[in-house]
Computed example of a mutant assay.
Amino acid sequence: MKDIETRLDIGLLMSEFYNRLLADPAISYIFTDVAKIDLEAHLPHLTDFWELSLFHTGNYKKNVMQLHLDLNAKESLTDTHFDIWLSHFNTTTDTLFTGSNAEKIKTRALSIATIMKIKIQSA
């Protein structure tokens, strides 16, 4: 296996990750019934976000925290949801990639999930 090296690698990771999330009934309803995401339209934004987070490049401009606060107002995002999300993120990353960037993106995901949980609980 190789490390995450390009935007295409991040796109593959996001596609596989969301396929796992959408197949998990414990969390899929948040994306399908609450947020009602169009995955094909959403994937480029996810890739932009993680490209900026991992490589400090790209053009992600949205306020990811506010998007999740708005989502939480519709459906409470619980510690369990974050744990499931993080588990799928880590498993997908480990299935597809190995190396320093793969470890870095998992660390960033943990940091982001932790910050979001804290901000959502204090909102």
Rank of each mutant, 00 (worst) to 15 (best):
A41F: 06
D48K: 07
T47G: 05
T107N: 12
N59I: 00
K62S: 12
W85Q: 04
H68V: 03
T47I: 06
L77R: 01
L110H: 13
D94I: 07
S87P: 01
T91E: 15
N90M: 08
L110G: 01
E75P: 05
L54F: 03
F82W: 12
E51L: 09
F49S: 11
L77D: 06
T80S: 12
T95F: 07
L71R: 03
F49V: 03
S111I: 03
K104I: 02
N63A: 12
L86R: 12
A109K: 08
D48T: 06
L67Q: 09
T92M: 07
S100D: 15
K117F: 03
L67V: 00
I120P: 10
K74E: 11
N72C: 08
T107A: 13
L71Y: 04
K106A: 02
F55P: 06
L86E: 03
E51H: 14
F89K: 09
A102F: 01
I105W: 03
S100T: 14
D70G: 02
H56L: 04
H42K: 13
E75V: 10
A113N: 06
T98V: 13
T95R: 14
L46Y: 02
D94E: 15
T98C: 02
G99D: 14
Q121V: 00
F49D: 10
S122W: 00
N101A: 04
E51W: 06
F49Y: 13
H42G: 07
K62L: 09
K62Y: 08
T98G: 02
W50R: 10
L96W: 05
D83V: 02
L69H: 05
L69S: 11
W50K: 12
F89N: 05
T92S: 11
F89R: 04
F97Q: 01
W50N: 04
G99T: 14
D83W: 01
M65Y: 10
P44N: 11
K62G: 08
W85P: 02
K61C: 04
T57H: 13
Q66K: 14
S87K: 09
N72D: 15
T98E: 13
G99H: 11
D79F: 04
H88T: 03
S122F: 00
E40I: 05
H56Q: 11
E75R: 15
E51F: 09
D94F: 08
L52M: 14
K117T: 06
N90A: 13
I118E: 15
G58P: 03
G58Y: 02
K104W: 03
L52D: 12
S100I: 13
I118K: 12
T47F: 05
L71W: 01
A73D: 15
F82N: 09
E51N: 15
T107P: 01
I112M: 14
T80A: 14
D94C: 10
L46M: 12
I118M: 14
L96E: 09
E103H: 10
K74H: 06
A102M: 00
S76Q: 10
R108L: 15
H81A: 05
T95G: 06
G58W: 00
K106P: 03
G99I: 13
I84F: 01
K104E: 07
H88Y: 04
S76H: 08
N101E: 11
K61F: 01
A73M: 08
I105A: 01
M116F: 14
R108V: 02
